[in-house]
Design a protein around this nucleic acid. Sequence first.
DNA 1: ATAGTACGTGACCGATCGTTCAGTATTGCC
DNA 2: GGCAATACTGAACGATCGGTCACGTACTAT
Lengths: 202, 202
Amino acid sequence: MSANAAPTPARRGRPGYDRAQVLAVAVELFNEQGYDATSVADLAQRLGLTKSALYHHFDSKEQLLALALDEALGGLEGVLDDPAIAEAAPAERLAAVLHGAVLVLVDRLPYVTLLLRVRGNSDVERAALERRRTFDHRVTALVAEAQRTGSVRADVDGAVVTRLVFGMVNSLVEWYRPGGPVDRERLTHDVVTVALDGMRTR
Amino acid sequence: MSANAAPTPARRGRPGYDRAQVLAVAVELFNEQGYDATSVADLAQRLGLTKSALYHHFDSKEQLLALALDEALGGLEGVLDDPAIAEAAPAERLAAVLHGAVLVLVDRLPYVTLLLRVRGNSDVERAALERRRTFDHRVTALVAEAQRTGSVRADVDGAVVTRLVFGMVNSLVEWYRPGGPVDRERLTHDVVTVALDGMRTR
DNA sequence: ATAGTACGTGACCGATCGTTCAGTATTGCC
DNA sequence: GGCAATACTGAACGATCGGTCACGTACTAT
């Protein structure tokens, strides 16, 4: 996820898991079983540790969730904040955002998967939902602008078409797996194609 | 949900909640908080009852889940089994299935919502996932046939386009609310339009 | 009036939950 | 060798989990 140019910068201390490794395994498990259905004991077992060893790496189960959600949200917000995208004309900008969102989703798949399943059961979850809502509003504004420009059809409600198309993009987390039969480039192309022009032949 | 031509067939015994009412409230709560995050005590509180009163209506928390999932799966399978749809030509059949799926999703929204969040944590959940997989395969076969007939674009993988379009349809559970600003007819039209022809003007 | 049915209570069970704590083990650097 | 840094153990905690039990109440059909 983060920069790892140096393979391992010769860490001091007893070897074992570090924070990032524990987080990655935790997110994997949260996605398999759901956050609430995953106990700290489950996580300890998968790592081959005791429960108490985990509390050396983080303060609470919820902190793991917060770190993971931030990873996902940061990526998505980065797409909208990308200067190269922000300066394009509405029509291309929309396609670029779509393209960028798919890439973030694929590259940070476990983290985005977790984000999309958050229900607002705690302060951490509610804060994440709020950030997501802001992201959605910014995209909806972009679609509305594209409708005024004439590059997006005006016979369907802008907010509805935004939700539909991003619903399509987000649904990738339900089935896409890196290393599977569909590769990254093929996938982004197909998604943008279907989103813009639909499944029907013309 | 089930047939209720008679308003209330004069039930005997002490009045109170019946099975269907408890189930409806349970599903509502499961969708708000997640199945695992919802305790039987939570459900009892929302109904204004004690926990043990609930066990008069059902055998286990999991039984509630099973009943709800069956409600959703039955509806979806009914679309594919609909004789009027099965006899149409591939192109119209696909549009009809899309249309029908949206209607089932809207009419049984809480139940389908729950179904789409199942992760396979128990035998009940795994059985539901298996039924859903069968449904998906039948739809994928339909799209493949439409591609051979030429009514669906062949430049994207059939399985991928199926997943994308149904991902779009399923994402409705994340935001659509009956009685909200978007009505049922408008919604089904918009979904079918965007799925078939995309968001871009031509 | 009464029998039968449906609905509900309150106290309790063992299991599991997330979390804490005092102590121990293994490494790199000086 | 000594020290700082990092990783981990085992036992225990209070709380909450899904579920059970013996029993009391309110209604309807006959």
